[in-house]
Amino acid sequence: MSGGGTGLTAERKAALESWLAGQAGARAVTVTDEGRLSGGAISLNLAVTLEIDGGRLDGRHACVLRTGSASGVSASLGKVQEAAVLGAVFATGATVPEPLFVGSDPAMLGAPFYIMRRAAGIAAGFRIVKSDAPQRDLARELGRQLGLIHRVRPGTPGLEFLPLPEPTAARQAAHDFRQWAGRYAVTDPVLTYGLRWLERNAPPSGDLVLCHRDYRTGNYMVEDGRLSAIIDWEFAGWSDPMEDLGWFCAACWRFGRNDREAGGIADRDDFYAGYEETAGRRVDPHAVAYWEAAACMRWAVIAIQQANRHISGTEPSLELALTGRMLPEIELDLLLHLDAVAARGGFV
């Protein structure tokens, strides 16, 4: 599967091998291209094996080479920045792939990239949620992991490029969604209503932590029922910690298992309990409910942007085109959620 526009050409492979040898202080590095990995509408993930002869990483390493695609969405980080985030999270002891090499020079492979260790297991959401009994241990572990991730705070060296939300995380999010929605914000009444609701109900500023911002079933890997890696860090940024909990529990990420509100795998209780074990803060269910509405909205505007990559002609793609037609189901989830919170009270 090398070549064909998705893998490494012979020329790029040779350039990469020589650069890696320099980076690793090795006599030689051989890269075996094992083909494109599934998933990742925004990034390209290539399975590679590195044979490193000498130096600090002497030996054979199963890795993923991750690079950007032709056009991204507004919220996504560049690959060099994403690698820096991953490095900071790896340092907390969270179960994430270790970044090994960061290539900032776009000339080498056509775009900046990084290479991380490859985790084993499956990520596909519809496969993860397939189990007769709820996966309570997995939900609890995912809560614990999120608590660890949220220990990364503003001021962490190497993450200065991440902008701080202004004036609060919620108001920044609502502002961003309005920008990203473009003309849809004033022509699609469900989105207009969602934006209005988010602006009127925005919680005051609280803790700011490193949020993954795509922490959900489908973005972690599981091997034999156990968590093996949390992946897809391209949307990370400083925000309200409850944003990640709301995203994880939002109706759009349950893969048809609406009865298991924590990511389609278990009840919220296990996920919340795991979070409180490591995060050093309590879960605020009211704030999570706010961020679940924000989650539907965020997914809606990302879907609009994905579709626009196709519609604008920059990246003709059937998958991106169909993502645009997911808007009605995302908006249905938003309306059902706003109906439910209106019935419970507490929001205006």
């Binding site: 009444p189 469900v190 209503y193 037609r325 997911m326 808007l327 009605p328 189901e329 908006e331 249905l332």
Partner: peptide, 14 residues
């Protein structure tokens, strides 16, 4: 009303 509009769109998309 928004729910009715959304259901009509959903009848086409999904």
């Amino acid at each position: 009303v928004l729910m009715d509009i959304t259901r009509a769109r959903l009848a086409v998309s999904n």
